[in-house]
Write a protein that binds this DNA or RNA. Structure first.
Lengths: 180, 180
DNA sequence: AGAAATTATTTCAGGCTTAAAATAAATTCA
DNA sequence: TGAATTTATTTTAAGCCTGAAATAATTTCT
């Protein structure tokens, strides 16, 4: 992938045709993506613990709430964060105990729990978010504007590809819109 | 980042200079990277459970062992997988119980535990790995060869940037080679 | 209205994960 | 040699996370 065989410069196409069932490039790509993601997560986790004595799941949850003035339901947060409902309930329990988040049933639909940051929660989050943004910038400091923009675009493509493939699989499992 | 302000086409540079402390692009990039990584992880996790009744941590651990004919120590696996030693110990416990992995103290250094796949482990892994490679290829099917190659390269850059930033921080914390 | 189906959340059991403390073996060095 | 240090792993306590079952409220349908 990085170092083409000596003597050949072109011919990615040909190479692929020569090995019909070969998907090593995709596998390597995934492993590298995972490495990057893990490195960032671990570093942010460490810094949140050291500087703010908190955890990444808590920070992420607060970040979601901060973006919404009117509050969010457990289900909305769960979807945004791509974690289970039960997990949101558990992390919220901790934040409630620390007075950072407020939870109350919605007036119109008493099944729904609306989550908001308390004043303390907003203040606490603001301080963390500022540092967090700086840390992320530091971590990506080795990339210039163009590279960041290219990477952003390619990951957008990737995201689309993933959604498509996941949807394909789900449709297949459900008998393609249960029209049969 | 994706949609430049109307009337401007150039001038990423200028834009950056106008907002000195702004690192929103890096933040958006990180969020998108995390989204991709989470989508893939979740999907692979689901498929491993459905088709093989196993988990991703188990699969990842077996994948490391499979690459080494002579076996690996707990520490080596821990480093490769970027997880704690204690975690390796725990996941290995499950694999040992299922007869997929073998653990024995090294002859020369009795502190060290050498892990290898059993014959059953190799057989089991082989079946999963084949499917796994196909799943990953499916997930990235929306990207062509050039995009995959570009993305791989940019993530290589990113990985380098991350290692640098993390090292910088660590050096700083240790007083820059304790020469003071 | 009232039964049935749907929707939102919580609970539960179990596994993953971490950091820090404990254990145990090997190495250094006085 | 033997005490002190370093290295490899395990244990521990606590929190994260999941899928599935349970609960509770709403909506749909007759």
């Amino acid at each position: 992938m990085e170092t083409p065989a000596p003597g050949f410069v072109l011919d990615r196409e040909t190479k692929a045709n020569e090995r019909p069932g070969d998907h090593k490039d995709e596998l390597r790509l995934w492993l590298r993506l995972l490495t990057c993601s893990t490195l960032i997560e671990t570093e942010i986790r460490n810094r949140l613990r050291e500087e703010f004595k908190t955890t990444l799941p808590r920070f992420d949850l607060m970040a979601q709430l901060e973006k919404s003035t009117t509050g969010m339901t457990v289900g909305e947060v769960s979807q945004r964060l791509m974690v289970s409902n039960g997990n949101v309930t558990a992390v919220v329990a901790g934040l409630l105990a620390d007075g950072l988040v407020d939870k109350r049933p919605a007036a119109q639909d008493r099944r729904v729990q609306v989550l908001t940051l308390t004043a303390l929660g907003r203040k606490s989050f603001k301080a963390m978010a500022e540092r967090h943004e700086g840390w992320i910038a530091e971590l990506f400091a080795g990339l210039d504007h163009v590279e960041i923009s290219q990477l952003f675009r390619l990951l957008g493509q990737t995201k689309g590809s993933l959604h498509q493939a996941i949807k394909r699989r789900a449709d297949q499992a459900n008998g393609e819109g249960d029209s049969a």
